[in-house]
Amino acid sequence: MIDPSLIVDLLSKNVLETGNPLGVSNEKINNWWKETKIKSRGEWLFFTGMLYQLTPYIESLVSYLEKFENSKIQSILKFARYFRFLAFPTLKLVTPKRSVEESNEILKNIYSLLDSSVEVFYIPELDTYNGILLYDYGDDESFATHAKFVVKKLKEANIKKIVTADPHTTYALKVLYPKFTDADFEVRSYLELINPKKVSKNGEFVIHDPCYYGRYLEISDLVREKLKKTGINYKDVRYSKKLTNCCGGPIEALTPKISKAVAELRAKELGNSKILTMCPICLANLRRVNVDAIDISLVLCNESGRAE
């Protein structure tokens, strides 16, 4: 395992200085909206929390961390130097373009699903990293500081209703922000708001519920209702919904090895079908063990070119 204090220090430093765990400005990674007709006014503000955008880069970082995992504590200093060297420009070079494109595609699809269901709008300057990693690692102080920064921006823009793209951002905004800040937004996952239409998708899918949707926010049944409307065939495994099991993602930066082993266990439970995910971290981590997974937004929409 990589010394947690080291990771936590770097994370909080990056987030507090740049608003982002990789220490990169949001403009550099937030590009999906440029090829989409977005509205700048409406009822629900679309807020991605940057998780979909960040995941491809985090994944390449993790594949580097994997090499360090077993090195002894003594090499921490060397590692720290290396970590800095792995700054965004380097990461960008080693991150497959196709993962970045896929993330953009997913966000475009989510936006378009929302656009045909509710009055949604998007303001790129308001979209910020949600801070959840700080919370996960127990750094409540930095998390609160960051959350306050995010909330202030949103309040200044007079935002009341927020719709999110992934479970971690949903949980952060809906449950954690009100605890750590004076946030009082109405927060929904996009999966709660959309009205998907019939789509022509063949085959049977198995759903992998993310922990936050399945257990913490309990919206698994709702997701299934939406799927039914599209006519997509799906199957549930024993450990689904409230009893879902984790993809291993949350610890990928500290111990890629164990994280991968957890993904393997989950993959076994899910079987060999095509797997539907609803979270960028689940998608990436299950794919690390060669699960044939696809983001649910790509099957809920007919127009997506990449869905099949």
Partner: peptide, 16 residues
């Protein structure tokens, strides 16, 4: 102990 604590996924599967 350190490893045990930091490998917790926070997934909540245990809690219920």
């Amino acid at each position: 102990m350190l490893k045990g604590i930091f490998t917790c996924l926070g997934c909540g599967a245990c809690k219920i």
